Simulated scan of single mutants.
Amino acid sequence: MIRKRYDGYRAYQYLEAGQDYEIFELPSGTDRVASRRVEVTPEEEARTERILRENLVVSLHDHPTFIPKDVARIYEYRRQGRDVTAYQELSESGMDVVFDNMNDGSALITSKNGWKWEDVLYDLGMRQADLAHQDFIVPVRRLADINACKENGHLGLVFSLEAATMIENEIDRLDILYGFGVRSMGVVYSESNALGSGLKEARDGGLTDLGQKAVRRMNQLGIAIDVSHAGDQTSIDIAQVSEAPIFVTHAGARALWNTPRMKPDAVIRTVAERGGVIGIEAAPHTTLTEKHRIHSIDGVMEHFEYVANLVGMDHVGFGPDTLYGDHVGLHHAFSKQLGVAAIHRGLEFPPVEFVDGLENPTETFPNIVRWLVSHGYSDDDIAKVIGGNARRVLARVWR
Score class of each variant (00 low, 15 high):
residue 178 Y to A: 15
residue 145 D to L: 10
residue 165 T to Q: 11
residue 131 L to R: 00
residue 118 E to A: 00
residue 134 Q to Y: 07
residue 124 L to N: 03
residue 139 P to Y: 06
residue 149 C to M: 10
residue 160 S to P: 13
residue 159 F to I: 01
residue 139 P to V: 01
residue 117 W to T: 00
residue 133 H to C: 11
residue 173 R to S: 15
residue 178 Y to I: 08
residue 173 R to G: 12
residue 158 V to C: 09
residue 145 D to V: 04
residue 130 D to E: 10
residue 139 P to S: 05
residue 168 E to A: 10
residue 171 I to F: 14
residue 145 D to S: 09
residue 145 D to F: 09
residue 152 N to G: 08
residue 134 Q to N: 10
residue 125 G to C: 06
residue 147 N to R: 13
residue 141 R to A: 14
residue 117 W to Y: 01
residue 176 I to F: 11
residue 149 C to W: 06
residue 159 F to A: 04
residue 134 Q to R: 06
residue 177 L to N: 12
residue 138 V to H: 08
residue 171 I to V: 14
residue 127 R to F: 04
residue 139 P to R: 01
residue 128 Q to N: 10
residue 166 M to D: 06
residue 124 L to T: 01
residue 135 D to I: 00
residue 151 E to M: 07
residue 132 A to D: 14
residue 145 D to K: 07
residue 179 G to Q: 15
residue 164 A to W: 10
residue 159 F to P: 01
residue 150 K to D: 09
residue 153 G to A: 03
residue 157 L to T: 00
residue 178 Y to V: 10
residue 168 E to Y: 09
residue 136 F to D: 11
residue 152 N to W: 05
residue 170 E to N: 10
residue 128 Q to F: 05
residue 161 L to D: 05
residue 167 I to W: 07
residue 157 L to E: 05
residue 156 G to S: 02
residue 140 V to D: 12
residue 167 I to S: 08
residue 137 I to N: 05
residue 129 A to V: 09
residue 138 V to Q: 11
residue 120 V to W: 02
residue 161 L to Y: 02
residue 149 C to T: 07
residue 164 A to G: 12
residue 163 A to H: 03
residue 149 C to D: 13
residue 171 I to L: 15
residue 171 I to E: 15
residue 170 E to Q: 14
residue 153 G to N: 06
residue 154 H to L: 08
residue 123 D to R: 00
residue 136 F to I: 03
residue 164 A to S: 13
residue 165 T to W: 08
residue 162 E to K: 04
residue 157 L to P: 00
residue 145 D to T: 04
residue 164 A to M: 13
residue 178 Y to K: 13
residue 120 V to S: 05
residue 126 M to E: 06
residue 128 Q to T: 03
residue 134 Q to E: 14
residue 129 A to G: 07
residue 119 D to R: 00
residue 122 Y to R: 00
residue 130 D to I: 00
residue 151 E to G: 04
residue 172 D to I: 06
residue 120 V to Y: 01
residue 178 Y to W: 15
residue 147 N to I: 14
residue 137 I to C: 05
residue 163 A to I: 02
residue 142 R to G: 12
residue 170 E to R: 12
residue 161 L to G: 01
residue 174 L to W: 11
residue 175 D to V: 10
residue 137 I to W: 07
residue 162 E to V: 06
residue 168 E to S: 10
residue 142 R to M: 11
residue 156 G to L: 02
residue 166 M to G: 01
residue 153 G to P: 04
residue 179 G to M: 15
residue 122 Y to A: 02
residue 164 A to N: 09
residue 137 I to R: 02
residue 176 I to V: 15
residue 142 R to F: 10
residue 126 M to K: 02
residue 125 G to V: 01
residue 143 L to M: 15
residue 178 Y to R: 13
residue 129 A to K: 06
residue 129 A to E: 14
residue 161 L to A: 02
residue 153 G to S: 03
residue 175 D to W: 13
residue 133 H to I: 04
residue 157 L to N: 01
residue 147 N to G: 15
residue 156 G to H: 00
residue 117 W to Q: 00
residue 160 S to I: 08
residue 126 M to R: 01
residue 159 F to T: 00
residue 164 A to P: 11
residue 166 M to F: 05
residue 119 D to G: 01
residue 121 L to A: 03
residue 146 I to P: 08
residue 163 A to T: 09
residue 160 S to H: 11
